[in-house]
Amino acid sequence: MTGNSLIQETLQKPQAPPVLRRGATVLVRWREASVLIVAIAMAVYFRASADAFLTHDNLRNIAQATAPAAIVAVGIVLLLVSGEIDLSVGVVAALAPFLVHYAVDLYGIPVLPAFLLAFASAAVIGFCNGVIVTKLKVPSLVATLGSFYLLLGILLTTSHAYPAQIPEAAQGRIRLIFGAADWSSLIWCLGVVAVFQVVLTRTRWGLHTISVGGNLIGATEAGIRVNRIKIGNFMLASMLGALAGLLEAFRINSIDPNIGGGTALTFTAISAAVIGGTALAGGSGTVIGALLGALILAELQNGFNLIGVSANPFNIILGAAILLSMIANQYLSRLRRSGGV
């Protein structure tokens, strides 16, 4: 056809030198590289400042601090990518072990079904969050703030703000598997990260989640069931919150209502997701990045504690360190993009 060569010329883009393109493509493909560099740099710094940082014992401490935040962060990543957020996951994490305790100790339900009950309840909470956001059109920041307080109230009222004991029936093997064994929470964490990295990058669900967050109208026009995607991700986030809460409760051998109320879990998880490279605006995110972000935050907490920084100045340093990591991350990302395709 005569018109084609002209058209081909018009539509062909100019190419950069082949070597540069190939190297840059690798870096661009591996967006988590910059977060990994920051995490490694931090480990180097802390190792230089405190001999104990990389001992087996302390690595276990870091792993145990990373795991729950990373697990919740994975759920947050899915939501952020689809254009939403959930502030109530922390309370779901606190509530889940209480539900197990109530089921086993007050209603005589065996332990494993009680676990299922806890996860089912978390799924219901996520479902309600999702419906309020999609059908009632309340922005997720506000909606989940409301459910945060509601669930916190339920938690504190039913527990009388008093910590509870892990049910007798759950001691022993079950306790070990679900967080008490040294590396148990890390193994769960890595499993969750692996599964959801695949979900986000290699399944329809992940692709549609990205579409919903990137171009809501476009995704709807293309026929994607956007509400279903959002509600589903809310449910996943809540269930992951429940998992994190159970692991923490079993690890410390006590069911503590305070883990939900403070900023500990929710804020840490959101920070981890964002430090790891997930955009707050939606449409783009990385699960492995969230793991690295949680690792960075755990390194900071643990490292400065090892060095001996006390509580009041601690906050200054933690805040400064988070900002510095983010700036470094952004700087490296920009380097990547400009040097890339």
Binding site: S211, G218, E221, G283
Partner: peptide, 23 residues
């Protein structure tokens, strides 16, 4: 349909867009 807005997802690749919702 091809909409005015094109219903393309900027963050996705060309081939993922071509098969959107028909993967």
């Amino acid at each position: 349909t091809v909409y005015q807005g094109l219903a393309l997802i900027n963050e996705l690749s060309v081939y993922h867009n071509m098969f959107l919702n028909r993967e």
